[in-house]
């Protein structure tokens, strides 16, 4: 039953249904609003920011929030609000690009390993090598070798999470592969390509989406960790992780330097998670069946 229903569902009506479900979910709305707000901030940063985000005034450093500087000034006397607005660009970039790298390669490896038993051993041993690498040390070594800078950090963070995707994907594929409808599809002679992309992938999408939303957060935080170790974005680029890391020196005297970028990170992550969660529910074939 499930097989025929799923096979017979035309693509357009499915995405329409997903959209309809999303509209009904308040979490999706809140998440979407947060993400849209940050996206807008990222795109229109030069128009929105009250000040030049790189302009310093070192004699007016560490000023508390005021009329003039809504969120105070940082250790170089730069306007924190403007830096947070510009930092949106960097943090969204770090999160999305590094998760795209790990998501694409990780899912591909995981699907191949879980579905084709011959490839399983080779791929997963290769993943083991990557996974077994201590994350921060791997990222440090990659950045040390490639040189510092935002893009190298993204690559490092992206590579670091490939095996996580591969393992989760493979685990889910192993579970799904043995369910009745996949075995039935196989028996019906459906092509492997179609089985993987039409039946397995949608069925394992929910853990991957949950993972991705979490991983965007982790990626932004990993970038902050690299900043802590002195391997972040090059100044004067404003990235939240770097701002947070620089702010830790003043956590007792000028807490706003670190508090506001921290809140920006939290809020963005919250947006991704709420939206991702709603998407997961909307995509869930189990829920779909009940309709």
């Amino acid at each position: 039953m499930a097989v025929s229903a799923s096979l017979g569902t035309p693509r357009i009506s499915m995405s329409r249904r997903v959209a309809a479900r999303l509209r009904r979910n308040p979490g999706a709305w809140i998440g979407a609003v947060i993400l849209l707000a940050f996206l807008t901030a990222a795109v229109f940063a030069p128009q929105i920011a009250p000040y030049d985000h790189t302009r310093q005034n070192i004699l007016r450093r560490l000023q508390p929030p005021s009329e003039e500087h809504r969120l105070g000034t940082d250790e170089l006397g730069r306007d924190i609000l403007s830096r947070i607005i510009f930092g949106t660009r960097v943090s969204l970039q770090v999160g999305l690009i590094s998760v795209s790298i790990s998501g694409f390669f990780g899912t591909a490896f995981g699907l191949a390993a879980g579905y084709f038993r011959r490839l399983d051993n080779v791929i997963m041993r290769f993943m083991d090598i990557l996974l077994a690498f201590p994350g921060i040390l791997l990222a440090m070594a990659i950045v040390a070798a490639l040189g510092p800078g935002l893009y190298n950090s993204m690559v490092a963070i992206g590579i670091w999470a490939i095996p996580v995707y591969a393992r989760v994907t493979r685990g889910s594929v192993l579970g799904v592969k043995q369910t009745e409808y996949i075995e039935a599809s196989r028996a019906l002679g459906v092509s492997e390509f179609r089985i993987i992309f039409r039946h397995i992938l949608p069925n394992i999408a929910s853990p991957l989406i949950v993972l991705s939303t979490m991983r965007i957060a982790t990626a932004i935080l990993s970038a902050a960790s690299l900043s802590f170790l002195g391997l972040g974005a090059q100044p004067p680029i404003a990235d939240w992780g770097g701002m947070l890391s620089a702010g830790r020196m003043y956590v007792r005297d000028a807490p706003w330097v670190a508090v506001f970028p921290g809140m920006a990170i939290t809020l963005t992550v919250l947006g991704f998670n709420l939206f991702g969660e709603a998407l997961r529910e909307a995509l869930d074939p189990q829920v779909q069946k009940r309709n």
Binding site: T54, E75, L76, A144, G147, G230, P235, P236, A246
Partner: peptide
């Protein structure tokens, strides 16, 4: 932070400054 101030100061007289932060070994 000083390097960042130097960069801005160079900018003020029309010199483009690009900062390279390297860890000590490199």
């Amino acid at each position: 932070e000083m390097a960042t101030v130097i960069q801005q100061s160079l900018g003020d007289i029309g010199i483009r400054g690009e900062i390279k932060v390297l860890e000590w070994g490199a």
